[in-house]
């Protein structure tokens, strides 16, 4: 085996690292627009899924244009704020320590027959990483019209089931206010829930921590909208 001088080793490693860095930076820059587009389409798909409309990657944009007729941002006091709702980073907003500074997006959809549904984003922690979703309400801003959840790395077959329809369906028709003013959110309970219970759904067996994280996510995300909901319900 050849013997290499120290100078050669330093030069070799420096050149190699610079070449690799350039290559990767170039690839990242070139692919960024495609990746951003994918993320945007996915967000639109998720919003549409929360109003029970299944969109593919191809038709998500046109369906979004068709159904989401209005979107705006409010604060915890329910006051309107001049901002584009779609570009709000929910994760960054929820971590702001001053609650008044948080921008809270609301998407209004007009469904077939002129029926309105109000979509708000959710964000929280699962077992292994972040979980998020969108939840939509009827015009009383109390009854859930649809819900969609997603996650980064929950256990497949267990916590990851929050993505599946069988878990999301039971949320439909649940209510977040008790006696119309007391905020109770929707609980995710272990071991069977009476379907008549308006404020709880069944948890996932074997996915307790994700289920509880989801419950906390719904509670902490929706409580921000409490004032807005109480002021604007019809």
């Amino acid at each position: 085996m050849k013997n290499f001088s120290n100078t050669y080793i330093y030069t070799f490693s420096s050149v190699m690292v610079i070449v690799v860095a350039l290559l990767l930076a170039l690839a990242a820059l070139q692919l960024k627009p495609f990746q951003d587009k994918n993320i945007e389409i996915e967000k639109k798909q998720n919003i549409l899924a929360s109003i029970n409309i299944v969109a593919t990657t191809e038709n998500a944009e046109s369906l979004y244009e068709k159904y989401i007729t209005e979107s705006f941002v409010v604060n915890v006091n329910g006051e309107l704020i001049e901002k584009d709702a779609f570009s709000v980073d929910v994760r960054a907003e929820l971590s702001k320590s001053n609650k008044l500074d948080r921008l809270l997006p609301v998407y209004v959809s007009t469904l077939e027959g002129g029926k309105k549904a109000y979509v708000v984003p959710l964000r929280g922690k699962g077992l292994w990483g972040p979980i998020w979703g969108y939840i939509s309400f009827e015009k009383d801003l109390n009854t859930i019209y649809g819900a969609n959840f997603d996650h980064q790395g929950e256990t497949p077959g267990l916590g990851a089931e929050i993505k599946e329809a069988w878990f999301q369906k039971p949320f439909i028709g649940k209510q977040i206010f008790k006696d119309s003013t007391q905020f109770v959110s929707v609980k995710v309970n272990k071991g069977g829930v009476d379907p008549k219970n308006l404020h709880a759904v069944d948890a996932i067996s074997g996915g307790t921590i994700t289920s509880k994280g989801l419950e906390a996510m719904i509670d902490s995300s929706l409580i921000q909208y409490k004032t807005y909901f109480l002021m604007n319900r019809k």
């Binding site: 490693s13 190699m16 690799v20 990767l24 690839a27 990242a28 495609f34 990746q35």
Partner: peptide, 23 residues
Amino acid sequence: IVQLVVVAALVILVDQILRAFVY
């Protein structure tokens, strides 16, 4: 180290391409 740099660069490329085209 050289092997690791080559492998890491390839893996990052594969990851970026997957994210861009088969999200």
